[in-house]
């Protein structure tokens, strides 16, 4: 589908591909098969962010860190500038790419979004010798685990079901995903968790991002990526740059407009995360 290389494995093949897995699934949720993308894996998201930062800096972009925006000046439906902790910046164009804080910025600019911000928890274990060489996801029981090149198990949990900016998340959420991982991978049952965090994710009613213009002239937004992770970020940056430069969406992001909620052309991708959020 969509030209993605994906194959179906039966239970026997799952065991051959990932020997650490216990197919019995605790007796209640036996593994009957899997879909596998051999090409898939993980990437160093922080390295990608820093790579972009260094390249942008080398091209002459000013990156001002630790400088929150306090206000957005809009006159006659057009943006004039932004108020920051370090002063006012006059500008005819503003691109808002702030993930969980999208609604906060939108409110400053005076337009509405369908976004709800929740914490999405993740946790890493103590580092151990390499054992898991693939990313494993079980949508049915919400197990999502891989092993980083530093040896830690990287585990993705779910969102809280109510909005919050506390960046913590509730305890039953990681408990649920760790139970699932312990049933699927008995060898991990004695692993100790080292670090937990909850990022603020901006979720949309159709679980698809909003990339494009806003009701305010000169303000563009790239948000609503929800629980989708960073993988589409570079592509979204590319079409967003086109949108800001040309004041028109690129054909790839045209369907992802804020206006789709008015026209009804929603893009339902609730299944795309592959785990039962």
């Amino acid at each position: 589908m969509n030209g993605i290389d994906s194959e179906i494995l039966n239970a026997q093949q799952v065991k051959e591909f990932c020997p650490q897995i216990d197919l019995r699934g605790g007796g209640r949720y036996p593994v009957v098969g899997a879909s596998l993308q051999r090409r898939g894996g993980t990437a160093r998201h922080d390295a990608v962010a820093w790579g972009y930062a260094r390249a942008a800096d080398a091209l002459g972009v000013d990156i001002i860190q630790e400088c929150p925006v306090h206000g957005i000046k809009v006159v006659d439906g057009k943006v004039r500038g932004i108020e920051t902790a370090r002063g006012y910046i006059e500008t005819p164009k503003v691109g808002i790419v702030v993930a969980g804080h999208s609604s906060v910025l939108a409110e400053m600019a005076g337009f509405r979004l369908p976004v709800q911000s929740m914490p999405l928890q993740a946790l890493v274990s103590e580092p151990v010798k390499p054992t898991l060489d693939c990313v494993v996801m079980s949508g049915a029981v919400h197990a999502y685990v891989s092993q980083s090149d530093k040896g830690e198990l990287v585990i993705g949990a779910g969102v809280d079901h109510y909005i919050g900016y506390g960046q913590r998340g509730s305890q039953q959420v990681p408990e649920e995903t760790i139970s699932a991982i312990c049933e699927l991978f008995p060898i991990f049952r004695r692993m100790r968790m080292m670090r937990q965090w909850g990022g603020i994710v901006d979720t949309c009613p159709d679980a698809s991002p909003i990339i494009g213009k806003t009701p305010v002239e000169g303000i563009y937004i790239n948000c609503g990526w929800g629980t989708g992770g960073f993988k589409a970020t570079p592509g979204s940056g590319w079409v967003f740059a086109h949108t800001v430069a040309c004041d028109e969406p690129h054909p790839l992001n045209a369907p992802f407009s804020l206006d789709r909620y008015r026209t009804g052309y929603l893009i339902d991708e609730h299944g795309a995360a592959a785990v039962a959020h």
Binding site: S103, P114, P205, Y261, R262, G264
Partner: peptide
């Protein structure tokens, strides 16, 4: 209008602060 109906169905407050829920 379609905009008013969509505002009712989809647009929501999402405050970093006090929320009424």
């Amino acid at each position: 209008t379609d905009q008013e109906w969509s505002d009712y169905v989809f647009m929501r407050r999402n405050p970093k602060g006090v929320v009424l829920e």
